[in-house]
């Protein structure tokens, strides 16, 4: 199986992650061909999940299709990269019925478009107008600070690092003062 995939899709590497889990990364235009081949020839009948991971530094999303054989003993992660701007990849709903809801989820969370999926309506975020929340540029902390507030009465919080520094400086100063006082005292006694 590995040799066929390597030849046909010109990939260098098929990773064996565990006994029951393989992973391959292919070009974007070859991915559906590979999925269909796995499905027809190697009994990978079930689409378990479609996952997405945002690699913002490299300017792409990694979309992974996880397929499982019909005896459920082997899984295959088929991964491809798509650009972050106007992210878009064809829908799989014509082959796998359950892809509809998975794509709907990713559409809402990442703003990826799946041409061919008729039902990309909102899922759990009602009336959401900001950036799709799972994209890395969406900053949850900033959103919370802008939209929500802390409980009242929490302003007594001290910056501990500063406080430690201040106290240490204070102690040092006190010590120095004490030393000075001592020295002065001894000078006085010397003078006698």
């Amino acid at each position: 199986m590995f040799a066929t995939i390597k030849n046909r899709f010109a990939t260098t590497d098929i990773e064996v992650k565990r006994e029951d889990l393989y992973k391959v990364v292919v070009q974007r235009d070859a991915i559906f061909e590979l999925i269909f081949m796995l499905r027809e020839q190697y009994d990978y009948q079930t689409l378990n999940a479609i996952t997405c991971c945002d690699w913002i530094e490299e300017e792409h999303f990694a979309i992974t299709y996880i397929l499982t054989t019909s005896d459920r003993k082997q899984s295959f992660m088929v991964q491809t990269m798509i650009g972050r701007e106007d992210a878009q990849i064809d829908s799989l709903t014509h082959t796998f019925e359950q892809a509809e809801i998975m794509e709907r989820d990713l559409h809402e969370m990442y703003g990826i478009d799946f041409p061919g999926n008729q039902n990309l309506v909102e899922l759990s975020l009602e009336n959401w107008v900001h950036t799709p929340p799972l994209r890395r540029e969406f900053d949850t902390l900033e959103f919370v600070n802008n939209n929500l507030s802390f409980r009242e009465g929490r302003d007594g919080n001290m910056d501990v690092k500063k406080e430690m520094k201040r106290l240490r400086a204070l102690k040092k100063a006190q010590k120095a003062a004490a030393k000075k006082a001592k020295e002065e005292a001894s000078e006085v006694s010397d003078g006698n």
Partner: peptide, 10 residues
């Protein structure tokens, strides 16, 4: 106690 602070929990 180097900072003379103690925790309070919300």
């Amino acid at each position: 106690n180097s900072s003379q602070c103690i925790p309070r929990i919300d």
